[in-house]
Design a protein around this nucleic acid. Sequence first.
RNA 1: GGUGGCAUAGCUCAGCUGGAUAGAGCACCUGCCUUCUAAGCAGGCGGUCCUAGGUUCGAAUCCUAGUGCCAUCACCA
Length: 594
Amino acid sequence: MNIQEVLTEKVKEAVESIFNIDLPTVEFQPTRKDFEGDITVVVFPILRFVKGNPALIGEQIGSYLKENVKEVENFNVVKGFLNIVISDAFYFHFFNDIKDTTNYGYSTVTNTDAVMVEYSSPNTNKPLHLGHIRNNLLGYSVAEILKASGKKVYKTQIVNDRGIHICKSMLAWQKYGEGKTPENTGLKGDKLVGNYYVKFDKEYKAQIADLVAAGTDPKAAEKDAPLMQEAQGMLRKWEAGDEEVVALWKKMNQWVYDGFEVTYKNLGVDFDTYYYESDTYLLGKDIVDEGLEKGVFYRKEDGSVWIDLSDEGLDEKIVLRADGTAVYMTQDIGTAIQRTKDYPDVNGMVYTVGNEQDYHFNVLFLILKKLGYTWAEQLFHLSYGMVDLPSGKMKSREGTVVDADDLMNDMTATAARISEELGKLEGYSDTEKQELYRIIGLGALKYYILKVDPKKRILFNPEESVEFQGNTGPFIQYTYARIQSILRKADFEYNTTVEPNGNEELHEKEKELLKQIQLFPGVVTSAAQNFSPALLANYTYDLVKEFNSFYQNVPILPEENLQKKIFRVQLSKKVGEIIKSSFALLGIEVPERM
RNA sequence: GGUGGCAUAGCUCAGCUGGAUAGAGCACCUGCCUUCUAAGCAGGCGGUCCUAGGUUCGAAUCCUAGUGCCAUCACCA
């Protein structure tokens, strides 16, 4: 039981005993640094039940607690705030309870329900960029956090491997590619294919310009341009299963997958299962019939099928075209249902998709609920803000994107430069150094992105954005490395339990650290409930700040009292474990040295 | 125009279900490396919490109305 739970009971007991009143809840907050105490009871809300002077009531409750609760050592009242000093013994006991717990803060799997987390889901016509990085980091991290909170998780993605945009790259390669391949150019497959997507756009725009110059209406020119006509022809052939087109499609998609695989590996993300749009794009039509029967959908005169969501404050939305072909929504309905068939233990899904699709997911979830699927109550759109550059939006076709591979390489290079300047890596081989630079560079990037509340937009300035000092990944990694250094040097038995015998006093910094450690399990839970890695990132930073203050103000290994020394080493070790656990949930590695 | 999101220090961000003088980092200024890694520590400077009303003992937080930025409202994906 943590201290807040203990005190809730005791404060109620106090109010019962002094005023003979049954108090429903007690409100706590951490005591502000400028007052003495560890935890504070806010007296004001109690005034609704007990009339009187808040300061006096605080005094009375405080006296009762000091008298009757062994954990309460002292108290003081400032205005309506009852500040309570908790005994060192309580914290000693707390620490001894958890010090040998592996995976402290994680919950074990408690129910059989699984949740499927979808993220990444790229188009296979261009390389991944910074926007995808945010998506991948968020999705991966939320999946890990859910696991740590006791859920079974399947990570998945739906690969957008078909459609007109894919045909554009294919056509451009066919026309202008001169037989170039990743093998004969040395180019990464996704990069090679992406170049032809850009090439298509360039040639296409030129054709439009020519047509417009010749007097064609701009709208019509977009449709009539020969390249667009050809691309659409190619899509029709693909849908008809034309051997040549399908072969080209397979070949070029494979190039892209090989390229993506490298990027995912460097980024440190993974998937348990994959869905491909080429397999799922026809799904959902049978569900439309089902929905018509149930009266969830209705058919208009022209044959198109709709759902009316105006009662929910939304509009009417089409779910099947008049010609009987599917729209995006149809496919998403079908895919969701397919997933619960493929993985029957799935009872909830998280979709990691940018906030530009908020409306789409509102509608999708409503439709699934109306169709009566129980798991539809457990759907969550992990909606996140765009990553913009100082120059504005990133646009693949215009080449104004921050490429994912380039960015990771740049980060690693920056980490290398800084590390070499500091020159602390004596004895490390070049391979070890390279690996370390990668860990630090990626740590900087990932932390920078994940520490921000997902729903907020990120303005990314490639020149100056990612830092290595202050509230950053490397600062936290550095603290971890410091702790490992202490553990390497602690050449004595420090694994024994230090029992408080009444003489040990906690140093103020130790106590602050213990309070912070106590918060970790709650933060994991709350990060899971809110689908927010940012909560974990910010917690870890606070913990690490506290540790560094401890480290620089309190002797650990030089401490002469053996019991104190042992306790401090154990405390440091535990902080290191929490940093490692927490960063693992963010997908960030920690180094032994740096 | 309808709907949704965001707005906190020069910059980047915290601020849990309303609670004490609004917190960090970067930048700028002071100190601290012959004791465990200075990617650090200790301190200073810096804020009409977008605006105006309202609810409350108490509002950055809740309500209303504005303003600004972004997204969305296609038989596009």
